[in-house]
Design a protein around this nucleic acid. Sequence first.
DNA 1: TGGGGCTATTTTGCATACAAAAAATGTTTG
DNA 2: CAAACATTTTTTGTATGCAAAATAGCCCCA
Lengths: 238, 238
Amino acid sequence: MSIAIPYAPAAGFNVTSLTERRLLHETVIDQLRDLIVQGELAPETKLNERVLAERLGTSRTPLREAIKFLASEGLVELLPHRGAVVAPLKPEKMKEVFVVLGALEALAGDLACRNATDADIAEIRALHYHMLAHHARGELAQYFRYNQQIHIKLMECAGNATLAQVYRGLNAHVKRARYLANLSRERWDKAVKEHADILDALVRRDGARLQVLLRDHLANKLVLVMEALAAQRGEVAR
Amino acid sequence: MSIAIPYAPAAGFNVTSLTERRLLHETVIDQLRDLIVQGELAPETKLNERVLAERLGTSRTPLREAIKFLASEGLVELLPHRGAVVAPLKPEKMKEVFVVLGALEALAGDLACRNATDADIAEIRALHYHMLAHHARGELAQYFRYNQQIHIKLMECAGNATLAQVYRGLNAHVKRARYLANLSRERWDKAVKEHADILDALVRRDGARLQVLLRDHLANKLVLVMEALAAQRGEVAR
DNA sequence: TGGGGCTATTTTGCATACAAAAAATGTTTG
DNA sequence: CAAACATTTTTTGTATGCAAAATAGCCCCA
């Protein structure tokens, strides 16, 4: 992930404006990653190079480079002489990812309690209230958006770019599962309550407590994802 | 990193034998990674595509794909329109990596205490004694070898492939610094002693204790690396 | 009907060709 | 002599071409 360019507009703006220092294969990386994370390219979808290249308006060469990059991130799997497929969403893999994410978020929480400025915490509080607002209105997509932003901001507060990078990579996997989770109101309320506790611990800069909360929060999220995956499998089998 | 093929002979065997399902760009990935980790391609070395491709006996296309893959691992950095360089060994980056590695190893230790079979632990004990033997003889390279194997085996015992994969990626960075660490006998003895404690905690399956030990062990290792980096910088500045 | 083996088509993997950007070189001028 | 400019050379980025592998289609036959 160590491209010099920070983070850029995801999809197909065609502004040949100022900052056209972006390379084709980099935009392709972002486009392809988005297609996968957003679920437009479902897990286990075969990536036909000719078709995809055409769709993304490029040739196969930059596309193949992008695929290799994402293979290293683990979002696609390479099958020798048979191309690449979007990485499958296996329950077993999800469990593994969540365990690692748990450790990473716990670490981030601990670090954030020490390193975050008051302004940082104020920002997280603001994001938290945005999230609450969307929760109140039942706007799931917006809720997720701010939810993610809170976690990412927490990562930033930890002040460890490497940690943030590893987190982002693993989180990309998890985000794919989000679109199939059918959150019950009860579960949703519980998640929001957990977030309140998380914010509280951060404000009190209680690193030990925050670690526990974040780990539990992730464990609960894992349960949701597993249920969703099970339900989906049930549908498929039906 | 999600290539179907597990782990393969690192460097240039030219056996066109049974398992010649390996693709060129995959062997190139491994070769290039080795060159970087072994320090043959020093940090900040510019990767000239034509020269490197020739050296590795391939064309630029698979090489570029390999570079993209390793860029995602963070071993090389991409500079738009200016190619790629071996990722620099910045002290700040090292600190970050060690902190994350600490959390990952701690997690692995905890999991290993629960999941390791007695045979696993026996194997680690065996590796430990090999390591002691090489320490006694002052054989640093061999010592490192078994040291690494112990840590990797511990990762395996955790039974979380995702964890192991992330660990491997970050560990590759650290390994690069190993070659410039000039271990004093005193420091070396201390590290060995720490390993004895680690083994002990594992045998007793004391996860909490093992976590602490592993974190401390890594923290000490970081100190060594930082000193080595500082010394190196001093030399360069001289 | 359905399965095995052959051929044709598609797709991947790698090499090469070409265009654009950057670096190196040389030249001029103050 | 140095600095700025222009020109050449090198290097990167992308597209295309070609060979090998995999897939699909087809025919034949039990």
